[in-house]
């Protein structure tokens, strides 16, 4: 299961592509879907690679991305991510 998930708000996305470059794991791509403003929308092309690092969201100029991350199971020492 992927460790994270980046959720793009399609109507806010302007297809600038900065999140695609910012993602260190090649998760995101500009999809063939266009929003109502006519912009191509970023989406997770390889969701299984997402770590939930949120670099995409920190880079997005239109605050179009929210990021979720796997919660560390209680008691687990390594790999916990907050």
């Amino acid at each position: 299961m992927p460790k994270g998930k980046a959720v793009v708000d399609a109507e806010r996305c302007k297809g600038c592509g900065l999140c695609v470059t910012a993602c260190p794991f090649g998760v995101l791509e500009l999809s063939a879907t266009y929003n109502s403003s006519g912009y191509p929308v970023a989406a997770m092309a390889h969701p299984e690679k997402c770590t939930g690092c949120a670099l995409c969201a920190q880079t997005c100029p239109d605050v179009a991305i929210e990021v979720y991350r796997e919660k560390a199971a209680s008691g687990s020492a390594a790999g916990g991510s907050t």
Partner: peptide, 24 residues
């Protein structure tokens, strides 16, 4: 099993910015 780690700041309104794509 997933928690939100990045959300829109609470102090921002829901309005969409009028800036061009990619504008800082």
């Amino acid at each position: 099993t997933l928690t939100k780690v990045f959300a829109r700041p609470r102090s921002l309104t829901d309005k969409r910015f009028t800036y061009c794509p990619g504008c800082h």
